[in-house]
């Protein structure tokens, strides 16, 4: 199994690993350089780096955009690293991993959406990877792009476009008819149609944001608690907690385990799952099959 690799192969490997790690490191450096030093703990949105004047509305380039691009760059590195040195016979651990990812998403898409949506598996994989890694950015202290409503709003909007596209597959009349399924509930149907992307966006955004809000509150509380507990100690020991709140070491990690790792990955999974269910549910498979049959018959007649 152990085949000696050439020096160039190892060099490319090292470059790819650098490509994975360097964006994250750059993000940390940018964060350190641009964050103004403050004592107070505040809950705020993404930091604005610069504003591009655009029609309709100015476009601020914020932390969330930059971090998204860094994540995308890093994921490109991951993809290239996993598929580097792929061969049908010689199997490495990373190849097993790549195959596992591909086959798992293929199976998931196949079982949730059916064989017609086979081409969706890279999209689902992309949503999961981008969402999960964006949320996991909090682990290295960066601002998670998923706690910006605009980011998840954009994803939800794309999912909404997909849903509408598949509803339009049988023509605009069928699309309009689907709203008046029970005619009395037409307004409710329209509202629920609009509510789908909004609820998806707010769900993801709210989960990640609530995690960071609770983390911030806990950090503030632990800072205050360490001052009240150890502030009365004599001499320099009493001043230490104000500079270095000792209780903040370790304890927030337990919450971080749930809010950053578990919740981030779970929300990524749920966003992908809901995408699959909504898109597959929007596609009127039986009507579409009937329509295709009709077209086929017409073609036969003309021939």
């Amino acid at each position: 199994m152990s085949k000696r690799r050439s020096a160039s192969f190892i060099l490319v490997d090292v470059l790819l690993i650098l490509m994975i790690l360097l964006p994250l490191f750059c993000g940390m450096v940018i964060k350190i350089l641009t964050t103004p030093p403050t004592d107070e703990i505040s809950i705020a949105g993404a930091q604005i780096y610069f504003i591009v004047p655009m029609p309709l509305q100015d476009m601020p380039i914020t932390e969330s955009q930059v971090n998204s691009w860094l994540v995308i760059l890093s994921l490109l590195g991951v993809c290239l690293y996993l598929t580097h040195g792929l061969s049908p016979t010689y199997e490495t651990r990373r190849q097993h991993f790549a195959e596992m990812i591909v086959e798992a998403t293929d199976n998931m898409v196949n079982s949730n959406m059916g064989a017609y949506f086979k081409a969706f598996s890279p999209f689902i994989c992309a949503i999961m990877a981008l969402s999960a890694f964006s949320s996991l950015l909090t682990l290295i202290g960066l601002y998670p792009p998923t706690s910006d409503l605009n980011v998840v709003g954009g994803w939800a909007l794309l999912v909404f476009f997909l849903i509408t596209y598949y509803k339009f597959k049988c023509g605009p009349i069928h699309y309009l008819k689907s709203f008046a399924e029970p005619p009395a509930l037409t307004p409710l149907n329209v509202i629920s149609e609009i509510a789908t992307p909004i609820s998806m966006a707010f769900r993801h955004y709210g989960n990640v944001l609530s995690g960071s809000v609770i983390s911030v509150l806990l950090a503030a509380a632990l800072g205050g608690l360490s001052v009240t507990l150890f502030g009365n100690l004599p001499g320099i020991l009493g001043k230490l907690p104000q500079v270095f709140p000792i209780l903040r070491v370790g304890i927030p990690a337990i919450l971080s385990l749930y809010f950053d790792i578990f919740s981030g990955c779970l929300q990524a999974f749920i966003f992908a799952m809901l995408t699959m269910l909504y898109v597959a549910g929007a596609f009127p498979a039986e009507d579409y099959a009937r329509k295709m049959e009709k077209i086929k018959n017409k073609n036969k007649k003309t021939n």
Partner: peptide, 17 residues
């Protein structure tokens, strides 16, 4: 169950927002 929980959580998250 996780899917259902996440969907059920939505109302709570609206309140949070």
């Amino acid at each position: 169950m996780l899917m259902g929980c996440a969907v059920a959580e939505t109302t709570g998250l609206y309140a949070l927002v």
